Simulated assay, not measured.
Amino acid sequence: MFAILGDIEFTVAGGISGMEHTGTADWAEHPRIQGKPLLEWIGEGLDECNLTIELHPVLGDPEARLRALRQAKSKHEPLAFVMGSGEYLGPYVITQVGNMIRRATAVGQTVAGTVQVSLREYTGLFTRKVLRPGLVDSALNGTSAAVIGSPGLISRFLPTPSTTQLVIGHAKSASNILRAGQNLYESLKNGNASTILGQVPQLLGVTARTLQPLQGLANAAGLLDDGADLTRLGEVVLDSVMGARSSLSPVDIGNIVERFGASYAALNQAASVMDSAGPRLAGLAADVLVRRA
């Protein structure tokens, strides 16, 4: 299996022929008198992924596979995106499904074509559904798609990420977002009250993005036999992040500098505690590599 999006599986044997993954950063441009504009980093942009899938009867029923993708898009729901290696990329939404027909029947049914699927990262609240290996869409039983592998099939060999992998993934996500938050705070610490006040929505946004992975870390670590320390770590970091957020609400031009300092200190504390778990998480990663977890 190459990757799975929700319960839509993509395999090389099933026709996937390419994937383009892009990440962006948002920068504001400030004009300056008699000089080039100054760029100011605002925050991370949403990751995007474009998949290229070949349709052909030998790869599965083209119409059924295209229909599965279109139905998933029409539901307007975020879906867990997991690589075949077990790496969890996070929730994504389908923003576009394009089909270039190269061969069709006399009544317009696709026989051969190329599908372009555009995915965009979703950063809202999301609860990942755990898929059960061996579950096959009953609508595809007995079809060539069920035998070969199609978007409607959950592989019986699906390598569902282990609890240890989930802990590592949540911790990595939280660390990356906290680091991005520190960069944003650092860029503002020497600014005036008006500038800092104008960036409060961005500060609240970057801290909000840490809540889900930290909650996921605490919950997943609780399922490990020896994960009590990581559960506690996740809770401590989450408390610090909540402190960073509460320091910025409510704020006004008179108190923003003081409250910004308190928020920055709380965020740095969260990042420091998170960094202290580096050796512990590295040990878990090693266990995964040697198939002990």
Results as ranks from 00 to 15, higher is better:
Lys172Ala: 08
Arg65Asp: 02
Gly84Val: 01
Ala220Phe: 02
Gly86Ala: 06
Met1His: 15
Val273Gly: 02
Glu54Val: 06
Gly216Trp: 00
Gly134Ser: 06
Glu29Gly: 10
Gly84Trp: 00
Lys172Asn: 15
Val241Pro: 12
Ala220Cys: 07
Leu217Cys: 04
Arg102Phe: 12
Ala180Thr: 04
Phe126Thr: 12
Ile168Pro: 00
Ile101Leu: 10
Glu121Phe: 15
Val200Asn: 01
Gly234Thr: 02
Arg156Met: 11
Arg32Gln: 06
Ser175Glu: 12
Thr105Glu: 11
Ile253Arg: 02
Met1Gln: 08
Phe10Tyr: 10
Gly108Trp: 10
Arg209Thr: 13
Met242Asn: 10
Ser187Asn: 08
Thr231Asp: 02
Leu281Glu: 14
Gly216Tyr: 01
Ala112Ile: 06
Leu39Val: 14
Thr160Glu: 14
Gly142Tyr: 00
Ala218Val: 01
Gln34Tyr: 07
Ala277Trp: 04
Gly191Arg: 13
Asp226Gly: 02
Pro201Gly: 04
Glu48Ser: 09
Tyr88Pro: 02
Thr195Pro: 10
Gly198Met: 11
Ser155Trp: 09
Ser162Thr: 15
Val12Asn: 13
Leu5Asn: 08
Ser85Thr: 02
Glu235Asp: 06
Ala145Gly: 01
Thr163Asn: 08
Tyr92Ala: 12
Leu89Thr: 00
Lys129Asp: 09
Thr24Phe: 14
Ala72Trp: 04
Asn141Ala: 04
Ala25Glu: 04
Leu224Asp: 07
Asn219Ile: 07
Val241Cys: 12
Arg259Glu: 13
Ala145Trp: 00
Glu48Trp: 06
Leu66Tyr: 01
Gly86Lys: 02
Asn192Val: 10
Gly205Pro: 11
Asn141Ser: 07
Pro201Gln: 07
Ile256Gln: 00
Leu281Val: 14
Pro250Tyr: 00
Ala266Glu: 06
Pro78Cys: 06
Thr11Pro: 09
Asn255Cys: 01
Asp287Lys: 08
Glu63Val: 13
Phe10Val: 11
Leu59Asp: 05
Val107Arg: 15
Gln116Thr: 11
Phe260Gly: 07
Glu186Trp: 04
Gln116Gly: 15
Ala106Met: 12
Thr210Tyr: 10
Gly84Ala: 00
Ser17Pro: 12
Gly234Gln: 01
Leu204Gln: 14
Leu217Pro: 03
Gly261Pro: 12
Glu29Ile: 15
Arg67Asn: 06
Val147Tyr: 00
Ile177Asn: 08
Glu77Ser: 15
Arg102Asp: 14
Gly216Leu: 01
Val93Trp: 08
Thr52Asp: 11
Ala25Asp: 01
Val115Phe: 03
Thr95Ala: 05
Glu87Gln: 00
Leu79Cys: 12
